Structure formats: C-alpha cells, structure tokens
Amino acid sequence: MTMLTIDMAIILAKIGLVLFVILTLAAYLVFAERKLLAWIQDRKGPNRVGPFGLLQPLADLIKLLTKEDFRPVGADKWIFYLAPAMAAIPAIMTLAIVPFGAPLIILGHEVNLQIVDLNIGLLVFMALSSIAVYGVALGGWASNSKYALLGSIRGLAQLISYELSMGLSLVPVVMLTRSFTLSEIVNAQAGCWFIVYQPLAFIIFLVSILAECKRIPFDIPEAEGELVAGFHTEYSGMRFGLFFVGEYINIVVLGGLAATFFLGGWHGPLLPPLVWFWGKVFAFAFLFIWIRGTMPRLRYDQLMHFGWKVLTPLALLNILVTGWWLVLRM
C-alpha cells in the first residue's frame, strides 16, 4: 500500500469511529439526562426497556423512525425538510477538528486522534456554529406556524447574541497561544491550563455555550410553557429526532471544545490522555444536565440584557486586560 492509501484509510477509519462513538454517546446522553433529572426530582426515570432501562435509546429510535412524517399545509416543502439537517450537520462537522487525545503510534505510523488538524481550526468552529443558526431560523419560518415562527425569531436573536460573547471569550486564548490550531492550543496548556490564566473567559464561554445549546436557563427558542415546542413544534418523526440528536451532539462537541480551550484538552496527571479528555467532556455534560434540573428559564428580555450588557462588555474588557498583561511580560 502506498503512503497516500494508508493515510486515506486512517482518515476514513477515524471518521467512521468518531461518528459511531458520538452518535452512541448522544443517544445514551439522552438516557443519562432522563435518569439524572429523575434522581434530582426524586423519581425513577426510564427503567422498563432492557436491564436498568439501558435499551430505552433503542426504543426511542424505533419510535421516531416509525412515526408519521407530517408536514403542515402551507409549509415551504424543501426548506422544511432541509432545516433539521442544517441543525445537526454543523455539530457533526465540528467533530472533525476536535483533538480527542495525544497522538498514537499504530503499525509504525503516527496517528493523530483528530480527523483533521487545521491551522484555522478555531475559525472553522466559529463558522460552523454560525451556520447552525440557520437550522433554527429556517425550521420555524418554513413551518407556517406562529408558535414556530416566534421560536425561530427568539432563537435567531439568542444564538447571534451569545455567539458574539463566545467568540470574544476565545480571543485571549488565541493571544496566549498565538495560534488558531487546536492541537497547538492544547499543547500550550501542558504546564498550566488556561482556566488558571483566564477564569473570566472560561465563565463567559461556558455561559455562551449553554445558550448556543439552547439549554435551560436559555431554552427560550423552545419554551414549552409558552410556545408549545417553539421552532420545531410542527416537526415529527425522525426530522424532530434530528433537531433532538443535534442538540445532544452539540453538548458533547462544545464540552470537548471547552476542555480543549481552557482545561488542557487531554493533558492531566497519572491517567491516560483519552481518559482525561472524555472525563472532562462528561463533566461538562453532567453540569449541563444539573443546571437544567435546578435553574428556571430566563425571560427573553433578561436573556438579551445579560448577553449584550454583561457578557459582551466583560469579554471586551478581558481582551484589553490580557493584551496589557502580555505587553508587560514582553
């Protein structure tokens, strides 16, 4: 086999493995959330399908695949069908740039535990997160429903607002590493994680990714008590499932990126790199679920006020302080 053939085979194997792992994780993250919320609320949660309810994700998948695929009269057909894919695909594509662990030597070849290591990886992440906005906006608009349209307008405003603070919170990370490459950002934290230097940036990023995932207390685009189910009210079957799975893939991806940018990625003492990385990802997933079980939803005006008048000014101030600190160190 030529070197090019081997490299292509390695890339295809990594893509297949990552997709299998992430889709399985997303399915069982739904199960884990239901069990954890049941524990928080003093009830049992799913425990009927399979031992300890472990086959519940499979039952949910069968249910979604066999449900009627309904489209409202007057809906824009092609955009209505396209929107769920636009919500899920950017989250899946972001997986290509996430570094899952330290490079391994396999059959004499160094294999990076990352599908592709781009020199503009951080910018690719920001670009893909901005594309995900269209899934929410178009899904609500194409449904020909007032509830769905209100949800999509709320979602559009929320995601654009918090995407700004999320991007600004990452500027100090780039200033410290002088690189957009995610593997270099991780390697720069071999001695000390960036959360030590940038605790404010980490908090801003954490709050922003909660909003980007549309999780409580930022689930304004769905808001079951106000908008039925918000932007995906009119979706059923597997098209609803794509919105649903996309949200949980996003939790895993954004948790991995938070670990990459601020918690040293795969770096850590004693344990293997893969254990460190996935431990941090699961810790973020647990935090997201815990917040959902304990906090109330913000009002729309509170959400926008917090994004534009608190997080964005703090992120800009943090950039100025970081620049001042770097100049003094020169």
Rank of each mutant, 00 (worst) to 15 (best):
L19V: 11
N47T: 07
V253I: 15
L156Q: 15
A211H: 00
F240W: 15
F243Q: 05
I160R: 14
R154P: 00
I131R: 08
A13C: 06
P217E: 14
P57Y: 05
M1T: 09
I62P: 10
M295D: 14
T5F: 03
A229T: 13
I92N: 02
T66H: 10
W325M: 14
A59F: 04
K35F: 15
F20G: 07
A148D: 09
E222I: 12
P99H: 14
E184I: 04
L182E: 10
S145L: 08
D76L: 03
I6Y: 06
G255C: 03
V310P: 07
G121K: 13
R178A: 05
H232N: 15
R43A: 06
L61Q: 04
P57T: 07
M304P: 00
D117A: 12
D219W: 10
K280P: 01
A132C: 15
T94H: 01
W308M: 03
V253M: 14
A96G: 13
T322A: 04
A285C: 12
D7M: 11
A27H: 09
I120Q: 13
D42M: 10
I105A: 05
I251L: 11
P313N: 13
E33F: 09
P103E: 00
P57R: 07
R329M: 13
P272V: 00
H109Q: 06
M295N: 15
T260M: 02
T177P: 04
V98E: 01
E33M: 08
P313R: 14
G230A: 00
V136S: 01
M175W: 01
M86H: 03
Q189M: 15
M175K: 05
A13S: 09
I6D: 13
L274V: 14
V310H: 12
L164H: 08
F284R: 02
V327S: 12
D7C: 09
P199E: 07
N144G: 15
G121T: 12
P199V: 06
R297F: 02
G230C: 01
D69A: 13
A75V: 02
M126A: 07
D60K: 02
K309C: 09
L149S: 07
A258E: 05
S183E: 09
Y162L: 04
R329T: 14
V310K: 13
F20H: 08
E226G: 07
A188G: 06
K63C: 11
F125G: 02
I220D: 02
F20S: 06
V98F: 05
F306T: 02
F125V: 04
D60R: 02
K77Y: 12
Q158V: 08
P57F: 03
P272G: 01
I249W: 09
Q114N: 11
T66C: 11
E110N: 10
A102N: 14
V252L: 13
L128E: 09
K63F: 15
